[in-house]
Design a protein around this nucleic acid. Structure first.
Lengths: 247, 247
DNA sequence: TGTACATCAGTGAACGCGCGTTCACTGATGTAC
DNA sequence: TGTACATCAGTGAACGCGCGTTCACTGATGTAC
C-alpha cells in the first residue's frame, strides 16, 4: 500500500525556522480545539459533532474555527486518526513492556491493554470500531494508523510461529485461504501460513467483538457488572480465543 | 426478568370489535411510517433520524406524525424492537429449517442466516449491534426481543450437550465462571455448565465481531471483497469459533 | 334508517432552537530591508 | 534598532437550511339512540 515511502517528516511546516510565538499559540489552540472536540464526541456522538459547539467551548466565535480546521469532516478525520494512533500506541506499549515474556503472555497483555483503552475512551473507541459515521467517507490517511494495532498482534504471532511456540496452527478451507491472496501479495514481508492468518484475523475480530459487546451493553444482565467480574470474563475470552491461533 | 408473564395479546386494542375502515387506514399508514423510517435510517443513521423527513416522505405535514408516534425516541424504540425481532426470527427460521441436522450444521446454518440478515439490513444491524445512539436510553421493552437470537444458539448447544455431541467443553477460570452467577440464578431453566456458558457467550460475541468487522469496513483490503470470498471467509470463522464451544 | 354527538386524522402556523460555511473587516504579530 | 509591508487570528453579521414539539382548527369517520 506504499505507506512510509519516505522517512517520517512532519508535513505541516518547513523543517527549519524556530517556532515563533504565533506558532506556539496556534499549536496550543489547536490542541484546545481537539480536546473540546473529544469532549463533544463523548457527549453527543460523532454524527452530531458540532463545530459551533466546539468554538463555544474554546471561547471563540464560530467562524474562527475555520482558521484551524478546514471543515467538519476534516475534524472527524483527525479524531479518527488520533484514536487509531492512541489504541495502536497502547497495544505497542503493552507489548514492549512484556517483550521478554512468552507469546501467550504477550497476547494477553496486549489485549488487556486494548480493552483498558477502550473502557477509558469509549467514544473514541466507538468512533473507530462502532457504526460508521453516516455521510462520512474515511480518507486514505486513516489507513496507516489503523494498521498499527493489528501489526502488534501479527508480530507476536509471527515470533511465536518462528520459535515453535505455536505447535499446530488450525487448518481452514482452501477457499478461505484464497480470500487472503490479494492482501498477502500486496504486503511484501508477509509470508505467514494462510490458515494461521485466517485464524489471526478471526481472533482479532472476535476480541473486538467481545469489547464491543461489553461497551455497547450486550452483556448487561448476562455477566456481572463489577469491574473485576468484567475483567475476569474478558480474560477468559482472551484465553479461549487464543486457542484458535494455537497459543 | 418476568418476560411473558401472561399469554401473548396485542396490547393496543380491546380484543373484540372488528376493525373499522379507520382502524385499517391507521394500520396502513403506521406501516408506511415505519417503512419511511427504515429508509431514513439507511440514509442518515439513527442519530439523525428525523420525524419531519419521515412525514415528508409519507406525504403529511410534520405535526401529523404525532397522531401515530408519540416522539422521536419512541420511534427509535420501535425500530430497535423490530430489528431485534427480525434478526431473531431469521435465526429461528434457519434453525427450524435444519432441525434434523447435527449441532455443528445447525450452528453453521444459523450463523449464516444471521450474517445474511445483517448484510441485507446493514443499518438495522448497526442500530442494534453498532454504537449506541447518543442521548437515547433503551427501555425494557427491547430486552425480550433481544434475547430471541441468543436463545436459538443456547438451544442448539444445550441439545448438543445433552446428546453427547459436545465431547469436552473447554474449562475456564473459576473467576470467570462466577461472573455468570447472577444471570444463571435469575433464569430458571438454565442449568448448563458455566464453562460451557462462558464459551457460548464468547462465540456469540466473536461472530458478531466478525460480522461487524465485515460490515463496518475493517477487513477492507484484508479479505478479498467478492461476496463469495466474504462468505467463504465467514464460514471459516464459524468453524474456528465453533471449536471454542466444543462443536 | 336517520339524526346528534364524540372521536379522530390531518392542517398550518408558530416557538425556540441548532447547524456549516462565507465574507468583509479590524487589529495584532512577524519579516525584510 | 526602526520602519513598511505582509501575514495571520479573530470578529460579527449574514445566508439558507434543518429540527422536535405544541396548539387551535377543520372536516371526515364512527357510535348510540
Amino acid at each position: 500500500m506504499g505507506v512510509m515511502a519516505s522517512p517520517p517528516r512532519s508535513s505541516a511546516a518547513p523543517p527549519t525556522r524556530p517556532p515563533t510565538a504565533r506558532d506556539r499559540a496556534r499549536a496550543e489552540i489547536t490542541a484546545e480545539i481537539m480536546t473540546a472536540a473529544r469532549e463533544q464526541l463523548a457527549e453527543v456522538g460523532p454524527g452530531s459533532l458540532s463545530l459551533r459547539a466546539i468554538a463555544r467551548e474554546v471561547g471563540m466565535v464560530s467562524s474562527a474555527i475555520y482558521r484551524y480546521v478546514p471543515s467538519r469532516d476534516a475534524l472527524l478525520t483527525r479524531l479518527i486518526i488520533e484514536a487509531y494512533d492512541a489504541i495502536g500506541a497502547a497495544a505497542e506499549d503493552a507489548q514492549a513492556s512484556v517483550a521478554a515474556a512468552s507469546a501467550p503472555e504477550q497476547f494477553r497483555a496486549v489485549w488487556r491493554a486494548i480493552r483498558a483503552w477502550a473502557l477509558t475512551n469509549p467514544h473514541q473507541y466507538a468512533l473507530i470500531y462502532g457504526s460508521p459515521v453516516p455521510g462520512y467517507r474515511a480518507p486514505v490517511d486513516t489507513v496507516a494508523p489503523a494498521t498499527r494495532l493489528p501489526q502488534v498482534l501479527l508480530n507476536i504471532l509471527a515470533a511465536a510461529g518462528a520459535d515453535g511456540t505455536i505447535a499446530a496452527p488450525p487448518v481452514v478451507s482452501e477457499a478461505a485461504q484464497r480470500t487472503l491472496d490479494p492482501m498477502v501479495e500486496s504486503v511484501p514481508d508477509l509470508d505467514a501460513d494462510r490458515s494461521a492468518l485466517v485464524a489471526a484475523i478471526t481472533t482479532w475480530a472476535a476480541l473486538f467483538g467481545a469489547i464491543s459487546f461489553e461497551l455497547f451493553g450486550h452483556i448487561h444482565n448476562v455477566v456481572a457488572s463489577e469491574p473485576e467480574s468484567r475483567a475476569a470474563f474478558f480474560d477468559a475470552q482472551i484465553d479461549l480465543v487464543a486457542r484458535l491461533v494455537g497459543l
